[in-house]
Design a binder for these strands. Structure first.
Lengths: 106, 106
DNA sequence: TTATCGTACTACGTCTGTCGTAGTACTTAT
DNA sequence: ATAAGTACTACGACAGACGTAGTACGATAA
């Protein structure tokens, strides 16, 4: 499994990548992460929702309510221009981190 | 630059990689990281020394004093069998993390 | 002689992101 | 009626990274 420290710092990127594709909400995103990684990474609910709060505070995403009539009301998030830029920056950082870490692998 | 959260979780791996090559000490390791990454990653002193403490507590490294007669006395660290195993594990985890994060890059 | 630079740490407190635990609320299937 | 699945929210704890500061020694330059 993936440790939280190993992926830490890329949770934001993962979430932004998904809301970049289309506005989404917590449960859907957590499912998407699980499916796309074939179960290798299952984000904790608390981690995900606290990331939403942080990203909205930073102006990276914007929340709005869905209009579904049944079930609990969902909070959807869409990416902002700030979020797009932040995402690109995180991608560049990832490329650099990859090069750095690779130098110290067996 | 590399953010601390991006590399967090791999500091231990980096340090273990270096003491695996040969027993070493703080200052030398910090220099080595800087040089090998061409300045892309400069580990903070406090981060490095607190990692030493942690890794010794975990049984991954063992400290011993150098016998240099001039300058301040150095604390050297050598890797243990536990440390080797932990290093290998971290390398496997890195491979997995890489695959996971890649799926969410642009 | 005095000061500064480089080496080699140690101590202490703060911050952030992650996580454990628990609870709320509504729907559908058994 | 109950459980399972959906969709969150609240609260507190923890660990690793970091800022700041201080200690200690040697070599070199002014």
């Amino acid at each position: 499994m993936i440790s939280s420290d190993g992926i830490r710092g890329y949770n934001d990127m993962i979430i932004l990548h998904l809301v970049l594709e289309k506005p989404s909400y917590g449960y859907e995103i957590s499912k998407a992460i699980k499916e796309r990684t074939e179960g290798a990474y299952i984000i904790k609910e608390t981690t995900l929702y606290s990331a939403f709060t942080r990203l909205e505070k930073n102006g990276c995403i914007q929340s709005f309510y869905g209009n579904e009539t049944n079930g609990k009301r969902r909070t959807y998030y869409r990416i902002t221009e700030t979020g797009r830029e932040y995402y690109r920056e995180k991608c560049r950082e990832w490329e650099l981190t990859k090069k750095v870490v690779e130098k110290f692998t067996a």
